[in-house]
Design a protein around this nucleic acid. Structure first.
Lengths: 309, 309
DNA sequence: GCTTCGTGCTGAAACGTTTCATACCTAGTG
DNA sequence: CACTAGGTATGAAACGTTTCAGCACGAAGC
């Protein structure tokens, strides 16, 4: 019987209209909100998601959220209006209350935000450990004046849950752990090439220069490198540079950045898995999934010049 | 009266369900199919699209198509099943007949493919001119042995409409235009870092090395650079490198690639505008929109060593 | 007073599915 | 033979919109 039905389906070329399905049942659509397409780390997460969902009936659609909290909220609403079965939000800069609101209306998994919630699952990288990996690596090499460039908080509210804030706090903690309390230096710009450039320019103009710069993201490190070259200095001889995300950018041979790897594919895959569990009501309690980062050392870090120790 | 209705809407927090709307009218959703998120050129196009649509009622949703023609077709079908009002397909590797089929079912704009169609609009870069820009630039510098690395055709069918094929043909044409018929050298690998690396390795192993390599895409040029460094050669002293797309990658200071700029934002913006015209039935005839590329010279190209002339 | 017009209101059909209830048929069991 | 269980057919309601027809009302023109 089943066989005959399937035969008829393919004979007639019948395709169910998903919009109509959605009126009563599911739409078999999963929405992924991401802020910034040009950050090469996000595609890795998306790949993890699509790989996990490939064999299922679900389709993935991406919502370009943009950097503004408002436009991120708008696209999230749009996904709900389209009756998507579940949402994955990548590093949303949306206020917590609003996030909880969405999560109550539709199964949701949040990637990147550290705040736990009873209403949605979370998949994060252990940014505290990641920051410590960098600080320890640099300190082991003999560096003391290690500066950090962080992404500036745009919204108000509890900023402590955003990945960059946790990274910065992890940096401070690790510095104290190595007895470098007095050397803690944080510059707030942005996770972008321009942000890294501006941050490095400021650091290089100070009377006592850092011997190493830890940029919170690879894209920012690119700007840092530019500023260093412009100042007539070389990496890693005059100054070491390390960053976070281990994107393809960091691996590029002419750049070769020491960077923390956070396995975006694993994060994306897990987010998708958790979301399916939620959609299919196999689980009610919320889950907090933390990925342990690893350090990938490349040619951008080395021991400081003996004069600088 | 209108005012009272709107007041009630916001009082009750009413949001129309798009799925239900779609049953009779429009869904106010535009689907964008893109093959490869990690190619930094595509986000530029997407930005152009979203910017053009920002002030309208339409929402953009992205469909990750993957590199396989089959998976691209699958996500395109999925978008139609969801009753999207219109589709923008970025460099689809779908057979022409299938493409025409979709275009007949739903308003469609195709970006990148050069074949004209009566059923959909096209937005392309003038790849022939673009390739000539590179060849002329290198020939003006004094190069004669200019090799080209192209993306290998995966499917069969008429491959002449894909951008990379047009670029390669433009390269051949321009070489002949400069009287360099005998120096035409094309290696087929892929538009990816690995592809560029493999292509350059092959070129460098030949008894007579080229003095310049024109990679069909920035990502491929990255691999070319890697192969050149590994061979102990320097750019541009021993060999010049140029490519296509002028992505942020090419602009990165440590890389600094001469590259052809094809204004992705303009292409995306125009695609969106054309699609709206089609959706709102303001136009029936299909349009072919061609963007003229420009050359951005950077430090990766220079005159060949006098011994190599 | 009659028609015409614009405006607002009401009701119903239609879109294509899923879900549920009901009824029917067949084979197996005691 | 009566009863049960499982498979199969049929029909109807529900989901939330858009679209359209019909109706009522008051204003304006004859």
């Amino acid at each position: 019987m089943q066989a005959r039905v399937h035969e008829a389906i393919s004979d007639l070329g019948y395709r169910p209209q998903n919009a109509a399905r959605g009126m009563r049942g599911q739409t078999y659509t999963i929405g992924v909100m991401l802020s910034d397409l040009s950050n090469p780390f996000f595609p890795e997460i998306v790949e993890g998601i699509t790989a996990e969902l490939r064999e299922t009936d679900y389709q993935v659609l991406l919502g370009p959220g943009g950097v503004e909290p408002d436009s991120q909220a708008r696209i999230t609403e749009a996904m709900i209006d389209r009756r998507m079965d579940g949402l994955i939000l990548i590093s949303p800069e949306i206020p917590r209350t609003q996030l909880d609101g969405t999560a109550r209306t539709v199964p949701t998994v949040v990637i990147g935000r550290h705040g736990k919630s009873a209403h949605h699952d979370s998949v994060v990288d252990d940014d505290t450990t990641g920051a410590a990996l960098i600080v320890d690596h640099l300190a082991d090499l003999g560096h003391r004046r290690i500066a950090h460039i962080v992404h500036k908080e745009s919204g108000r509210g509890r900023p402590t849950t955003m990945p960059h804030t946790v990274r910065a706090e992890g940096y401070r903690q690790a510095m104290r752990g190595r007895g470098l309390d007095d050397e803690i230096t944080v510059v707030s710009t942005a996770y972008s090439e321009e942000g890294g450039y501006a941050g490095a320019r400021e650091l290089l103009s100070r009377p006592i220069r850092p011997t190493a710069i830890f940029a919170g993201a690879d894209v920012a490190a690119i700007g840092v490198l530019k500023a260093i070259y412009e100042a007539g200095l070389t990496v890693p001889h005059d100054i070491s540079v390390a960053s976070y995300d281990n994107t393809t950018l960091a691996a590029l041979d002419p750049i070769s950045l020491t960077s923390v790897d956070q396995d975006g594919r694993l994060m994306g895959g897990n987010a998708a898995r958790l979301l399916l569990e939620r959609i299919e009501r196999r689980r009610e309690r919320s889950v907090f999934f933390s990925v342990t980062p690893t350090l990938v050392t490349r040619r951008s870090t080395a021991a400081p010049r003996s004069a600088d120790r």
